[in-house]
C-alpha cells in the first residue's frame, strides 16, 4: 500500500526482502545501510536473537530523492527466514509494495529456496496480493561460493514470471544496489498506472 502524502509531498513505499533462512536478506540491508549517505538513511533496526538470526524483522528507511516534486521514501524490511517464524512473515507482508526474493545459490539450499517461494506465494495470497502481479525481483546471492549452482539452472528452477534477476554477493555489495533499483523501478512504475 503506497502512502502518498500530498500535503507533505511525500511517497512512502514498502519493500520486503524474502527468502530462506541465512540466505543474506539482512546482509543486503546492512550493505545498503553502510553505503548510503547518512542524510538519506534512518537507523537500521534489527530485531534479532543473540545469535543474529532475525526474530521479527529488520527495518531500514531510505530517502532516495525526489520524483516529480515528491520526496520518495522507501521502507525496506526483511522477514525472518526460518520456517517456524511463518506467523511473523505474514505480518510483515502487510501493505507491501514490492518484494525481493533472495535465493541462496548453494546446491544444498535449492529445496529451501523453492519452499520459501511457495511460502511467499501463499502468504501474499493470504494478504490479498498476487505474486504474478506485484513488483518482484529475484536475487541469486552467495555467487562467490564454490558450491554455487549455475545461474541459468537457478533461473530455470526459481523464476516464476520472467522477473528481473541479479547475481549477488551481498557482503561485498555485488548486485545489491542493482536489485534494489530494479524493485524500486517496478514500484514507481506501478504508481504510474494508478
Amino acid at each position: 500500500m503506497t502512502f502518498i502524502n500530498y500535503a507533505a509531498r511525500e511517497i512512502n513505499c514498502k519493500i520486503v526482502y524474502y527468502g530462506p533462512g541465512l540466505c543474506g536478506k539482512t546482509t543486503n540491508l546492512q550493505y545498503i545501510y553502510d553505503r548510503t549517505n547518512p542524510a538519506a538513511k534512518g537507523k537500521l533496526i534489527s530485531l534479532a536473537t543473540e545469535t543474529d538470526r532475525t526474530l521479527f524483522f529488520d527495518f531500514l528507511p531510505l530517502d532516495l530523492g525526489t520524483v516529480k516534486g515528491f520526496k520518495t521514501r522507501f521502507h525496506l524490511y526483511t522477514v525472518p527466514g526460518q520456517v517456524f517464524y511463518d506467523a511473523s512473515r505474514k505480518l510483515i507482508l502487510k501493505g507491501v509494495d514490492g518484494v525481493v526474493f533472495v535465493a541462496d545459490s548453494q546446491e544444498a539450499r535449492m529445496e529451501a529456496n523453492a519452499e520459501s517461494i511457495r511460502n511467499l506465494d501463499k502468504n501474499l495470497k493470504d494478504q490479498g496480493y498476487d505474486i504474478s502481479v506485484i513488483p518482484y525481483v529475484l536475487q541469486f546471492n552467495k555467487r562467490d561460493l564454490p558450491t554455487a549452482v549455475p545461474s541459468d539452472e537457478m533461473y530455470r528452477q526459481l523464476n516464476i514470471k520472467g522477473e528481473p534477476t541479479f547475481e549477488a554477493t551481498a557482503p561485498t555489495g555485488v548486485g545489491v544496489f542493482d536489485t534494489l533499483k530494479a524493485v524500486a523501478r517496478q514500484v514507481l512504475m506501478e504508481l504510474k498506472k494508478k
Binding site: M1, F3, N5, N12, K14, G42, K43, I45, L47, F56, F57, F59, P61, H75, L91, I92, K94, G95
Partner: peptide
C-alpha cells in the same frame, strides 16, 4: 498507519527517531 508509515506527529520530537518509532509501533500492533 498499520504498515508502519507515519502520517502525522505533534509535540516535542527532538531526540526522537519517529520513523523507527512508527515502524516498531506497527510491528508491535501487528
Amino acid at each position: 498507519d498499520k504498515n508502519g508509515q507515519q502520517i502525522a506527529a505533534m509535540g516535542d520530537m527532538t531526540n526522537l527517531d519517529t520513523t523507527s518509532l512508527a515502524s516498531l509501533t506497527a510491528g508491535n500492533v501487528a
